[in-house]
Simulated assay, not measured.
Amino acid sequence: MLELSILGFLYEEPLHGYELKARIQALSGHIRPVSDGALYPAIARLVKAALLEQRTEPGSGAAHRRILSLTETGRTELLARLRNPKDTEITDGQRFFTLLAFLRHLPDRAEQAAVLRRRQSFLDTPSSFFYRDGEPVRAEEAPDVFRQGMLRIARATGAEERAWLDEAIRGLES
């Protein structure tokens, strides 16, 4: 998801590393903090793959800043990743939110809707955090108030997400 975030934010405008890190941190929040030890090697890989360019500009003080921008190859790569997200980018809630943050860059509304349909299909598959005799445990059947809470919150969140997906897909297909 780090590379998708880098490509997505740089699709919008060139940034220096510090600003890019701040935007990624704001998107992923406390759930998945990004360290310099992860960010800068990822940037180096993307530069080596010719997906990013970097140039040096004078900073506000004495230090120069490296400004990162997306190459045409990087733009093509981002759009390909948005068109065909990995299964984990559909099934993992935080990864899906990262995908959603940049899905607007995909110019074809039908392709955007197709990605949302994949998430919709995933949500329509019965699942639970807990199982009994191979069957999902419903909130009302959970053995304690804590598991009941987990299941009720997940059910409410899922219902709201399904409603939004239906609305968004209708809007994209109209």
Score class of each variant (00 low, 15 high):
Met1Ser: 10
Met1Glu: 10
Leu2Cys: 05
Leu4Trp: 01
Leu4Phe: 00
Leu7Asp: 02
Leu7Gly: 07
Leu7Gln: 00
Gly8Asn: 06
Leu10Val: 02
Tyr11Gln: 09
Tyr11Thr: 06
Glu12Leu: 13
Glu12Tyr: 02
Glu13Gln: 14
Leu15Lys: 09
Leu15Ile: 04
His16Asp: 14
Gly17Met: 00
Glu19Ser: 12
Glu19Gln: 11
Leu20Ser: 05
Ala22Gly: 10
Ile24Lys: 00
Ala26Arg: 12
Ala26Thr: 10
Ala26Met: 06
Ser28Leu: 15
His30Phe: 14
His30Ser: 15
Pro33Asn: 01
Ser35Pro: 02
Asp36Asn: 14
Leu39Tyr: 06
Pro41Met: 03
Pro41Lys: 09
Ile43Leu: 09
Val47Asn: 04
Val47Cys: 07
Pro58Asn: 10
Gly59Ser: 04
Ser60Asp: 13
Arg65Lys: 11
Ile67Cys: 02
Ile67Leu: 13
Ile67Gln: 05
Leu68Val: 03
Leu70Cys: 03
Leu70Phe: 01
Leu70Gly: 01
Thr71Met: 02
Glu72Ile: 09
Glu72Cys: 07
Gly74Lys: 06
Gly74Ala: 09
Arg75Ala: 12
Thr76Tyr: 05
Leu78Lys: 01
Leu78Arg: 01
Ala80Gly: 09
Ala80Leu: 12
Arg81Trp: 05
Arg83Cys: 07
Arg83Asp: 12
Asn84Ile: 04
Pro85Ile: 01
Ile90Tyr: 05
Asp92Pro: 04
Asp92Asn: 13
Asp92Glu: 11
Gly93Cys: 10
Gly93Pro: 09
Gly93Met: 12
Gln94Ala: 15
Thr98Glu: 15
Ala101Trp: 00
Phe102Trp: 04
Phe102Val: 06
Arg104Ile: 03
Asp108Trp: 03
Arg109Ala: 15
Ala110Pro: 07
Gln112His: 05
Gln112Gly: 05
Ala113Phe: 05
Val115Ile: 08
Leu116Val: 06
Arg117Gln: 11
Arg119Leu: 00
Gln120Trp: 12
Ser121Tyr: 10
Ser121Lys: 15
Asp124Leu: 12
Thr125Lys: 15
Ser127Met: 08
Ser128Gly: 09
Ser128Cys: 05
Phe129Thr: 06
Phe129Arg: 12
Asp133Leu: 09
Gly134Phe: 06
Gly134Asn: 06
Glu135Leu: 14
Val137Lys: 04
Val137Gly: 01
Arg138Gly: 00
Arg138Ile: 02
Arg138Phe: 08
Ala139Pro: 00
Ala139Gln: 00
Glu141Met: 04
Ala142Met: 13
Pro143Val: 07
Asp144Gln: 04
Phe146Thr: 13
Phe146Arg: 13
Gly149Phe: 11
Met150Phe: 12
Ile153His: 12
Ala154His: 09
Arg155Ile: 03
Thr157Pro: 00
Thr157Phe: 08
Glu160Ser: 14
Arg162Phe: 03
Arg162Val: 07
Asp166Phe: 09
Glu167Leu: 11
Glu167Met: 11
Ala168Tyr: 12
Ile169Tyr: 04
Arg170Trp: 08
Ser174Phe: 09
